[in-house]
Simulated scan of single mutants.
Amino acid sequence: SAPSPSSARPAEPSAGAARPTPSAPLRAPAPPRARAPPRAPTAGPAVADASEEAVALARLYDVDLIEDPGDLDLYLALARRTGGPILELGTGTGRLAVPLALTGFEVTAVDLDPAMLERAERFLAAVGPDAAARLEFVPADLLDVELASAGTFRLGFIALNTLFLLGTRDRQRRAIRTLAAHLAPGGIAVVDVWLPDTDDLARFDGRLILEYERPDPDTGHQVTKVAAARHDPAMAVVDLTSIYDEGPPGEPPVRWIRRDALRLVGADELRAMAEDAGLEVEQLAGSYDLDPLGPGSERAILIARKT
């Protein structure tokens, strides 16, 4: 099954800077063959309860993000401003948590998906013991987690469209309340979402769009990703199907399919959710450089303080 909406993030090409464009060529997916077992981990703990599909989709999530979204520098700058400890809700494969720990900050990173966390642990093991001593991965649902260290975090964040995957307004509000509840007085909360424009939403009509063809560094196999999305304006939901075909050259590909229901959140609603959680909004920025939010902004980045 697909990674849990409580923990995982949508693949960025469908929800951010690398989203599908009208000029992208369309391609029918290649016929699949039987799924091969995933490659055994080279380090880190085994994942006893992660399915073969979940392991593959966690690996392909990292292939999605080979092109850096560009948000790490923002979190490093905010961490230097606030100091630690730092909390990330929905860490995925540790893309942000591990570099923050490597830089010297104490980090707690929460995720529900065991396959994602297995890759995060491998990533952490690869960077050395100093970072490992500063980073704790917590397997838990970000909606319900109650850490013993609640009330001590100087910085907490929900990054890169994770909020969309929670699926309903109520669950999104609960996530921001959980984030706020774990902050120390004066602590900073950050939530980052994509702002699709009218043209973006018009493309979400079910058409298949080729998103990329690129090699997977783990396997050396070529990965072709196509995706189709449908937008329900009444519910502010995008139903997204992502299809990955992968395999060595000259052989029929293995196919993996991920389905997500993404509830979109605009800047005004994001502000209201933060205020509902008892946060004082410092800034709603339109980019990772913290440019002012305005017409044409592709992202809404909320920065708010716990009062």
Rank of each mutant, 00 (worst) to 15 (best):
P3E: 08
P3V: 00
P5V: 07
S6T: 10
S7W: 03
R9L: 11
P10R: 02
G16N: 06
A17D: 00
R19L: 00
S23K: 05
A28D: 15
A34K: 06
R35T: 15
P37Y: 06
R39Q: 14
P41E: 12
D49H: 12
D49R: 07
D49M: 01
A54G: 09
V55A: 03
L57W: 02
R59S: 06
L60S: 13
L60R: 10
G70Q: 15
D73V: 11
Y75M: 13
L78N: 15
L89P: 10
G92Y: 03
G94K: 01
R95F: 02
L96F: 01
V98Q: 04
A101Y: 01
T108P: 00
P114C: 04
M116E: 06
A120I: 03
A126D: 12
V127N: 02
D130E: 15
F137T: 12
A140R: 06
D141R: 08
L142V: 13
L142D: 08
A150T: 15
F153L: 10
F153R: 06
A159G: 06
G167V: 07
D170Y: 02
H182I: 04
L183V: 02
G186F: 01
I188W: 02
V191I: 05
V193E: 02
W194G: 05
D200Q: 07
A202V: 00
R203K: 00
L210T: 14
R214L: 09
P217T: 12
G220K: 07
A228I: 03
H231T: 11
D232E: 09
D232I: 06
T241K: 13
T241D: 10
G247M: 09
P248V: 11
W256Q: 15
W256T: 11
R258A: 15
A261H: 15
A267Y: 14
D268H: 13
L270K: 11
R271T: 15
G278Y: 02
Y288A: 04
L290F: 00
D291W: 00
L293C: 04
L293H: 09
P295Y: 09
S297R: 06
R299N: 03
